[in-house]
Computed example of a mutant assay.
Amino acid sequence: MATLELHSIVKRFKDNTVLDDVSLAVDDGEILVLFGPSGAGKTVLLRLIAGVLDADAGRIVIDGEDMTGVDAEFRGVGMAFQNFALFPHMDAFANIATPLEARKTPRDAVRAGVESVARLLKIDHVLTHRPRALSNGQKQRTALARALVGSPPVLLLDDPLRNVDAKLRFEMRLELPRLLADRGATVIYVTQDYKEAMALGDRIAVMGQAGIRQIGTPEEIYLQPAGLDIARLFGDPTINLLDVRPSRDGQGIHVALSGTRVELPAAMEPSVGRACVAGLRPETLHFVKAGTKGAVPVTIEAETPLNEKTVTLARTRGGREILVSRPAGTPGPDHGEAFLAVDAGSVLMFDKASGERIAAGGPAAPRKRATA
């Protein structure tokens, strides 16, 4: 295993700054997920760590050693590229074996290592096939197997399940953490799938324009997103965002939703009198009976069953849409007028102008690149 540190990394392509002053640290054996939209610089960051690209500024330190000027083959890094990068003239076995062959590993050990990782990734039946005879999912797993087989201390995985079918993708989400733990590597894992990020990451680094917007555990990212941009990326169905202006009177802090007073906790004091956006996760809203204190009146527009849950589209008296999610089989209205209870403790409040979350009990969090 190894530690990995990035110090003030900058990367430009002509006039386009892709990464600007990016810093982070990954602990021994940790799985850090890089998550963000396409074009955020995730793959570029991996290529810089691997030594395929050179940074314009900053330092990359692996296990205490500065990698500036160190060629890719001497960095102790394994990488599964997004575009597979398989040798077309070699079969899957030979492609996977290349890191071991480069070390002049004995033939029996090469075969044992390749067959072991191939079984784990369910491609042992196609080891004699060349890349042109493999499906995209098999190519992706072959590239992943090649990265894993040498047990490198640092492992870089660039969206390795992107081309895998839904069933296998779900299985691999369950199996990969164990597989990676067994290998003992320090891992940076890139994905655009928030469920994958939540399932695999010890921590998640959310990337935005030219840098890292927030780093935290999956729970911290979901429950305490640094801004609206991050809140929108996590959750299915997506978070409800409603313009509000919190007020305070003798009874406490509140907002008006659908003409109804909704109480907020005292910790929301920093939001009082400000133009804000309230974030309501669909699963924190619940249907209640008419007359329930604080119940918000809505009109049911549509209902969609989605296997494990049912999603309801409702509309407030002011015409604003609200999504409500409840476990499948849970009773709830499917038409006409209904009433919602809002879990005040789960309301997220964002400054409307900056988009930053207003931290309970303190001022709005400043917009800055996260470090860890």
Rank of each mutant, 00 (worst) to 15 (best):
I239M: 15
N83Q: 11
S354R: 05
A72W: 01
E5L: 10
L100K: 07
R367E: 13
G332C: 04
P88L: 09
E337K: 13
R132S: 14
M172G: 10
D108K: 14
K293F: 08
L223W: 11
L156C: 03
V244N: 03
R369F: 15
L86N: 09
A231T: 08
L264C: 02
S325H: 05
P106Y: 06
N163Y: 09
R274N: 05
L313H: 14
D66R: 08
L121D: 07
R357H: 09
L46F: 12
A256V: 15
P363Y: 01
F350D: 01
R146A: 10
L306T: 12
L285C: 08
R317S: 12
D229F: 09
A185K: 03
R315A: 11
V244T: 02
L144M: 12
H7Y: 12
L180D: 09
A210N: 14
T238C: 03
L156E: 01
S135G: 11
Y194C: 03
G41H: 05
R315W: 00
R12K: 14
A181C: 01
V272N: 02
T299H: 10
K309N: 11
A205D: 07
Q224A: 12
L228Q: 07
D159Q: 14
Q192F: 10
R107W: 03
R47N: 13
P152I: 00
D343T: 12
G329K: 08
P37V: 06
I9W: 08
A267F: 06
I188F: 03
P363N: 11
F81V: 00
S135Y: 11
R320Y: 01
R369A: 13
S258A: 14
G355W: 11
L156M: 05
L241Q: 12
A97E: 09
P99C: 09
A145D: 07
V298T: 03
A97G: 05
R141I: 11
A185E: 10
T186W: 08
V61D: 07
A341C: 02
P131F: 04
P363W: 02
L24S: 01
L168A: 11
P265C: 07
R132V: 15
M198W: 01
N307F: 15
L313V: 14
R59H: 15
Q138V: 11
E115M: 07
G41V: 05
T43Y: 07
R213A: 15
L48Y: 03
S8K: 15
A25I: 04
R59T: 13
G39C: 01
P331Y: 12
I9E: 08
K289P: 00
D54R: 15
A338C: 03
A147E: 06
V44H: 00
V18F: 04
A57H: 14
D182I: 07
L264T: 02
T43E: 05
L285G: 01
S23C: 06
D351Y: 04
R111N: 09
L19I: 10
T105C: 03
A57K: 15
G227Y: 00
S346V: 04
L148G: 00
H335E: 14
A112N: 07
V298R: 02
